[in-house]
Every structure is written in C-alpha cells, then in structure tokens.
Design a protein around this nucleic acid. Structure first.
Lengths: 329, 329
DNA sequence: CTGAAAGCGCTAACAC
DNA sequence: GTGTTAGCGCTTTCAG
C-alpha cells in the first residue's frame, strides 16, 4: 500500500505538505503543488479512509436507511436512493446502506463512527427511530414527513399541494365530479402520512372548486381494477380520475379508458407517479411527477449543509408540477 | 466519545484485555470477561470503525455496485440488494453503496481502503469493470454471469436451466407449441447474457422434447401486449407461454388469458419472476421463481468465504424451481 | 491468563 | 510557504 509518506518522499516534501495539498487548507506554492500532485498520480496514492477518519474525526460517509422490503413503491425508492447516492458523491460523501427498520443499525453506525450523518426513509408517525435519532450526536434528515413533534428535519414531496394541483387541472379540463384512486390499504395502514396528505389536498381543493370529489383506497394492487370498476358503476357521473398507485396504474388506466369508450364519455385520467412511469402508460390526460430523485438529492443537500454549516433547517417540501400532456397517446 | 481506554479503566484491566474480550482472539477468564462486558455496556462503548480499520487493515465493509438506473428489473434489483445487506450483517459486514457503472468508484473504494471486498451487479460481457476488478488487490464477486474469461467469481440464477424447466412443465401440461415472451429489446441489447441463456435453454429443451418453440423479444414494456397479440394471431396453434418480462407480465398474462377465452382454447402461462410478483398476477398456470434475495445472499456468502478462507470459487448458479400452481386463481 | 507498548496512516496544531 | 510531531483509537506483537 502506498502511503502519504511515500508520496512525500517521492515529491521531496514533508508529509504535512502532501496533506495540505490534498485538503487545500493552507497555501501551497504552485511549484510544490505540481510536484506533489504528480507524485500522487505516479504512485496511484489514495489516502486510507480509516486513518483519515481517525485523525479528522469525520468519515465522509452518510448512512442511509432505505426500505428494502416489498410493499413500498419500489420504483420510487430506487429513484430516491439514486438521487441520494449521486448527490452525495457531488459533496464528496459515500453512502453506507443500513438494514431497514432497525433502530439498532442507526446507533451502530453512529456510535461506531462509521458515518457523519444519517438519512432515514419511510419513517412512520410514531416511529421509534425518531427518538433514536434525537438521542444521537449525529445530524440526521428524514425523507418523508411523519406527523408529530418534528424533532428531525424532513424532506418530502408536497403531496397536499399535489392533491390541489390535480383537482385544478381536472377542473380546468371541464370535469366536475372527481375520484382519487389511492394507495393500497397496506400502504394506508402504515402511517407514513403521504396518502393522507394527498387525500386532504384533493378533498380541500374539490371543496374550494365547488366540485364533488371522493377518495377510494384499493384493497390491493390486484383488486385496484375492480375497485375502479365499482366506483364507475356506482357513480357513472364521475369523469375525472386521479390515480396514485404504482403497480396498478396501467391496469386502472386501461380499465377507465375502456369503460369510457363503452359509455361514450370523455373521461380524464391524471396520474401521480415518476415521469418515466407516466410515459409508459397510454391514455393519461396528464401526470404529476413524483420527483423521487430530486427528493433524494434535496435530502442529501440538506444533510450536507447541516454538516458544513451546522444549520438546522426544519421541513422542506418539493412542489408538484404537471408533466404536460406530452404523455397523451 | 467513549474509547477502549475508558472501558479498560472502568473494568480495571488493560486496553489489550478489552480488545481481546471483543475479538475473542485469546483466552480470558470468565471473571475478567464479565467485568469488561459490563463496563462496555455501562459506558455504551462501540469501537471506532476507522481506528479499527487502521490497526487491523480491514474494514468489515463490502462495497456493492448496484444498477440504480431505470431499465432494469427494479423489483429484482431491490431484492438482491436486500439479500446482500441482510446476509452481510450476519457475517458482520456493512454495505457501502457505490455509484453505478463506474470503474472509478470501484477503485476509489478499494484503494482508499474503504472496503474489504467488492460485489458488482449487472456486469456486461465486455464490461471494463471486469479488468478493473482483476487489477485490484481486493477480492470481488459478480452478481450475474458475463461471457468471457471468467476472471472473477460469479453468482447468478441458472437461466438456462430455467428455460428447460419451463419447457418441461409446459410439455407436462400437454402443450406442444410454445412461445417465450422475453425481455424488452433494451435489455437484450445490453449484453448481460441472461436473456440469451434463458432463450438457449428454452430452445434446447423444446428440441429435446420434440416440441415447437419460438422466442419473442418485446420492443418495450408497453408494446409487450401487442407483441403477444401478434404472436397469437400469426400462430394460433401456440398454447404454451413462458413470460419473462417484469413490468409487462400482468398485461401480457391478461391478454393471453382473454384471447384464450375468446378462442375457447386451453392456454397455459408460465412466468419467470419473483414469487411475490407471481402471486399478484392472476391466471398463471405456474411460475418459476427468480430467487433474487437468495442470489444476493449467496453472493455475499461467497465473498465472505473468500475473505475468510482465501478460497477462490468460480461460478455458482442457483437452480430454478417451480413455485407450484398455488398461484392459479 | 494479562499488560505494556509499538505501530497502523493521517490531520492539524505548533514551529520556523 | 514548509517541516516536525503529537496524537486519533485500536490491534497485536512481545513479555511475563
């Protein structure tokens, strides 16, 4: 293994000079800098992460606890993780992936000085991990917006605003009777709050717009289709649909479109899902993008800012935006 | 921060004794051990990972490079990662998640002594990362089976055997004309080899069984349905379908089933996908599980064994198995 | 069975 | 603008 001492010797400078060339923490003459950098390249030197963290008391690693189980929107999780990893690298951090749902894992990583900070996804409102995080010396940011004391900074999508936006759009398209086809009950049962927030925004916007809106959870992804069919049968006056349900979206969209054709009605389907998913589903009037990767990036930015400046921001909600009806087929 | 010295003092022993109590690398009297362990608990001591890796020249971290982009079977990737993380913890390792598709990232992690070993997913046959890995001092294992020199140990699902198994099953069900509905072209274009292996096994098995088999790639997930429709129209004698295409599976299955009903034929659909996905798709005759989590776990076991014993196994392919027709609706 | 002490490779005072 | 050096917290000889 090539060490900083090897580099120093090769460049004919002291160890500390090499260190300072790398960190930029003190002025170095151009000449010296060049020699050192050349030596680093020639020898293929990379500083030993452990030695570094021992001496500097920081690891340049962020711990990420992501939900790896099924029963979450795998697509969205993946994109958030991508955003985190990508953005973290831009700030010079690496990501340690922690086993999900485990307070112990957070403590282990923090107390063992394996990470400088923690990013935690999929936190429920009464999640014990919130207390765990509060008790740690390490800064942390939640991806999601649990209800409660808000002791830890959060980053999430503004689902409530998305509900409003969806209604505004459907109303603008001329629809006066709307239905929100929501998450599977499984998701509703966990108290991650986003399904609630979406429904709240949707219903409030309906009221504000003076239109009729109803919210429908699906028993499961498979049964989403029959749920929609039931809704359409029970109230044939509904013409605007807002669908938020990853796996079921294509099926639901197809069902709605087919029935619309049979009835000869002009139905509109608005989806809430990642952009690329929307593009693969035909027949959507429009879609609201869940900016999953941006959420991951924003959370990472926030934790890095806390690490750098010691600031402690509170909650950051990313605003919804319509994709444009480019997705119409 | 509480250090090993604090523990030693609290327990009234030397630092080295505390270290040996933790590592178990030398005999300790029960009495001393008890005292030390109590001190560790009382003080809430966790050894500093960096200090440890500096002194011991090992990190207890495995680097994992997973494909975070879209255009892969997100479900399967997620499960493999889950298998890796879970199994790694059982061996006392943590997982550093590396930015995808980046030879540099592998080198950075290895040369910076951030990891003890590397696990790399989604390697293509002429992937430059294979050479990178060969040039490293750190052991590595590929998840997947690229063609070529096989310089690095691999773990993967036995897609070829899965092709055989599918045909055997369909033939046993009485079908003599079979079609493999394969991956999107996008996947075929990348040379990850599994689509090829599946097709090879499928065709060889058809020949061995004396039945007719054809292979059909889908232009995209969306167009999978029309692809199937075309296949069924062009050759109405096909009655056995083997579907391997994550996003499209439910749509394809629905299409096949519907057409079968129209024609009054007894069609059979066999799927290749994770168990839980199969359960959510109605109308399958049976399914072959992609044991994604087991693949991740097996790869982790392999790398840990290499780390522990210095053994260098070559290729490990996990055998396919039928789920049983419990998935029939 | 236990202790003392020499590093591991780096950072960051403290010198000049 | 550069060099010297004292740790950072742990593992592991080497002694007993």
């Amino acid at each position: 293994m090539v060490t900083i001492a090897d580099v120093a010797q090769a460049a004919g400078v002291s160890i500390s000079t090499v260190s300072y060339v790398m960190s930029g923490k003190r002025a170095i003459s151009q000449e010296t800098r060049d020699r050192v950098e050349k030596a680093i390249d020639n020898l293929g030197f990379s500083p030993h992460a452990g030695a570094r963290s021992l001496a500097s008391r920081s690891t340049n690693v962020i711990g990420l606890q992501a939900p790896l189980r099924t029963g979450v929107d795998v697509h969205v999780v993946m994109q958030i993780v991508t955003g985190v990893v990508t953005q973290a690298r831009k700030h010079g951090y690496d990501i340690l992936l922690l086993a999900s749902d485990d307070s112990k894992a957070l403590q282990r990583a923090a107390k063992g000085s394996m990470v400088d900070a923690l990013l935690v996804m999929d936190v429920e409102s009464d999640d014990p991990r919130i207390d765990t995080l509060s008790g740690l010396d390490h800064p942390s940011v939640l991806i999601g917006l649990p209800q409660g004391r808000r002791a830890i900074p959060c980053v999430d999508f503004d689902f409530e605003a998305a509900g409003w936006l969806a209604v505004d759009r459907l109303v603008a398209l001329g629809h006066r009777r709307l239905a929100l086809i929501g998450s599977p009950l499984e998701v509703m049962a966990r108290h991650t709050s986003y399904a609630d927030r979406l429904a709240r925004g949707f219903l409030a916007a309906c009221e504000a717009n003076g239109v009729v809106g109803t919210v429908h959870a699906c028993p499961s992804t498979v049964e989403a289709v029959s749920t929609v069919a039931d809704v359409m049968t029970e109230d044939p006056t509904i013409t605007g649909f807002f669908v938020h349900n990853e796996g079921a979206l294509p099926h639901v969209a197809a069902t709605i479109a087919q029935r619309g054709r049979q009835r000869g009605d002009e139905l509109a389907i608005l989806a809430l899902c990642p952009d690329d998913v929307a593009r693969s589903v035909p027949g959507l009037a429009d879609s609201i993008a869940v900016p999953a990767e941006a959420i991951g990036a924003a959370a990472t930015d926030m934790i890095c800012e806390i690490l750098a400046n010691g600031t402690k921001p509170a909650v950051r909600l990313l605003p919804p935006a319509l994709t444009g009806d480019a997705t119409a087929s």
